[in-house]
Nucleic acid binder design. Structure first.
Length: 307
DNA sequence: TACCAGGAGAGCG
DNA sequence: CGCTCTCATGGT
């Protein structure tokens, strides 16, 4: 490496701690109806932490701090950034929320759910991180899922640069890395019986036997079928990955909370069978059914208070 | 202490 | 198909 290049890098590395050149590490995005706290807390992602009126997380190999004001999201990174498209994509800043909400059926449950938390958004996460995270999610409360993933990243993720004075951060471990870890070591991260599922799925993805990039290009039913081949992935987790990771807009994960919402809000007097319920979710909620699902999830889980 | 958690897999009739 | 049991761990 040339000396001049090394010097240049060294200057850049310090740039984000220098107010004079901070604009390389900071970006203000104008937004409307973007409830950052609800979005980062709505059980679709598990690594963001509230910190000093902002949120700190890792997106890919970027440490990021986000802070919401009335009509902006301000992002700060540890290193200078020239192309912010990775973050705009993650946050889905180009999505037209009005169009999404207008596509919902005009029924009382959804009016209430949207009214309770207008600005709730779906993120577009890395498919592998999303897949691995939701394999770890089964029969766990959200606080515990966060804990498991925190352990996993701390023990096995690659360090990423953070600004001076911030606690160290790590990326989400790659498939190859997780495939290489013993089941016993994974169990030290408190994931219990999910350990062999995660390990075997990591091996299938790392080896190319399961190609996540290919799933991106498939129609929804084929994409779902591919994910269902993976150990530890059933209908619910598959739909979470299809919705939160791949962005299939009609994927509709039904967990205990969404089941509760559907029964309570749409079928209060009878007990629909599983196939009947599935047909309902596939036909009733429109072309952004997955979004509707997220509003119902958040609404029922927060007791209708939108907190 | 009981019950529950953004489930899946396997065995059963 | 639909039911039941187990799996591991910690919050409420």
């Amino acid at each position: 490496m040339a000396a001049s290049s090394a010097v240049f890098k060294s200057v850049n590395a310090a740039a984000c701690d220098n107010p004079a050149v901070m604009n390389d590490c900071e970006r203000v995005f104008p937004v409307r109806d973007y409830d950052l706290a609800a979005t980062l807390n709505s059980g679709q992602t598990f690594r963001w932490q509230s910190h000093d009126a902002g949120w700190i997380g890792v997106v890919g190999s970027h440490w990021v701090r986000l802070e919401a004001t009335d009509r902006t999201l301000t992002a700060r990174t540890a290193r200078p950034v020239t192309d912010w498209s990775w973050l705009a994509h993650y946050l889905q800043l180009d999505l037209n929320l009005d169009d999404v909400l207008a596509s919902f059926p005009d029924d009382e449950p959804l009016r209430s759910a949207v009214g309770a938390c207008r600005g709730l958004r779906l993120l577009r996460q890395d498919p592998w991180e999303c897949l691995a995270s939701f394999i770890l999610s089964s029969t766990k409360q959200i606080v515990q899922i966060r804990q498991i993933i925190s352990h996993l990243c701390e023990r096995h993720g690659e360090p990423v640069p953070v600004p001076d004075g911030h606690t160290p951060a790590r990326a989400f471990p790659s498939p190859a890395r997780l495939a290489d870890i013993s089941e016993a070591e994974l169990r030290h991260c408190k994931m219990g019986f999910r350990a062999p599922y995660l390990r075997e799925t990591a091996r299938l993805v790392a080896s190319g036997a399961c190609d996540l990039a290919l799933i991106h290009e498939m129609p929804l039913p084929e994409a779902r079928a591919e994910l269902l081949k993976l150990p530890g992935v059933g209908p619910k987790i598959a739909d979470c990955v299809l919705l939160f990771g791949f962005g299939f807009p009609t994927a509709f994960p039904v967990d205990v909370w969404v089941m509760r919402a559907l029964r309570q809000l749409y079928f209060p007097r009878r007990r629909p069978s599983r196939p009947r319920l599935q047909r309902f979710t596939e036909t009733h909620f429109g072309r952004h059914a997955g979004y509707a699902q997220q509003y119902l999830f958040h609404y029922i889980r927060t007791g209708g208070r939108g907190v």
